[in-house]
Design a protein around this nucleic acid. Sequence first.
DNA 1: TAGATTGTTAATCGATTAACAATC
DNA 2: TAGATTGTTAATCGATTAACAATC
Lengths: 252, 252
Amino acid sequence: MARRAPRPAGATLPAPGGPRRIPDAAVARLGTYHRVLTDALAAGSCTVSSEQLAGLAGVNASQVRKDLSYLGPTGTLGVGYDVEHLLGRIGVELGLTRHWPVVIVGAGNLGRALANYRGLAARGFVVAGLVDADPTKVGRTVGGLAVEPLEALEGLIAERRVRIGVIATPASAAQEVADRLVAAGVRAILNFAPAPVGVPPGVSVRKVDLALELQVLSYHQVRATTRTRGDGTHPRRAAAPALRPDPRGAGR
Amino acid sequence: MARRAPRPAGATLPAPGGPRRIPDAAVARLGTYHRVLTDALAAGSCTVSSEQLAGLAGVNASQVRKDLSYLGPTGTLGVGYDVEHLLGRIGVELGLTRHWPVVIVGAGNLGRALANYRGLAARGFVVAGLVDADPTKVGRTVGGLAVEPLEALEGLIAERRVRIGVIATPASAAQEVADRLVAAGVRAILNFAPAPVGVPPGVSVRKVDLALELQVLSYHQVRATTRTRGDGTHPRRAAAPALRPDPRGAGR
DNA sequence: TAGATTGTTAATCGATTAACAATC
DNA sequence: TAGATTGTTAATCGATTAACAATC
């Protein structure tokens, strides 16, 4: 397999699809700031400092100022940030002022939970459709929404102007579903299937793997209980035992 | 608020709770390798190269080798990795060979979906309990498991040797639940509530915010449609409009 | 004014990627 | 052997944090 050519020193990347100004991690934190500021406003706060906001969001004050600087100047020197103003700026930048129709593919446990989840609607995400390939699931009502057949996917996306799709299918179906979503005009995908999906440039994908999250935690537990070698070394094992050079060894 | 003292140059951190050898991001990828290797083994592959594994997992081959190096030597120079051997090494390191009893707090849509989710059981996570504060939910059966009252939490954790807790409650209850989980002996928390929870050192927390994931995607859409200023600058706004210095301004 | 706080630059940290010597 | 591939080091990249001049 061809070795990747070394990138010419100092070359700047062309940034496919135009420059993305705010890093995803910062966008996610801005969303958190928006939530805690909403609470702060309800509690009567008119202004907050970066120190205060950092405390509410559980991050560093420098990071708050850095994140907010992506929005352009939003505060007042020596005073802080006007809560209402800041809420407005974040809301506009992140699209929280709009409604985003979403289609969920897969009406299994996870898909139904998402369709029912009030936290999504509260932040402008409207479940415009819930489809499933299983005919026995079609017609069931979930959170006031009838499950539609998979064949309805394309029409539904076009009619209801869906831009965001959620994949809540088994891993085996994920890529095919992603292809159909993209072909039908979806521009962003949230993937809950435990398999990566490939998409053309310009389409955004976020992946959430619930089992993987738990696995990281179980590793922490293993680490905590297994007694650590102080020197951080591993026992040198005698490498892999007796490699069979691939005689197509009948999958056990 | 006291400015953080500058860290003395060159000082190494004491690493609370002992050195954590493998970074979380690498642990998550190791989990992915485990999954794709399981498929590869079933398909008859006895060995894989880092290039092949990278292709299956959708990452860089250098990264595969780096990640695997955390396990100590696992491959054979000039040949590659023995699939079965590698599965074993990853499984032991991540705790995939054990059963992990898990308690889920909150039997709303998300909690019930998680309790029903077969992908968890498939990877060794056994839902040992599902509790809810709402008496009308108690007694219902979800995925063969009866919802128990919140009061049963501590007893359940002790009896069933639960080490991992999942918070699937509203934001308002998250911190109190976290405190009770930790007090009862839970050492790792997966938090689905849209609020950060504080825990004592030594306890691991992972946070998943479904609405935040969608918000990042909606931002991408806003960016894609809003025409970008070529120079990457922002229009200089006249800063925040007329700051009222906090006269307790009756929540609008 | 004196005190407070932003916006930004520089320093630090950590994670990813490229390169290559070792060697099967 | 010649070709392939690991394990690891060095280079790069990006994100976080500290520091501070500007100034309300």
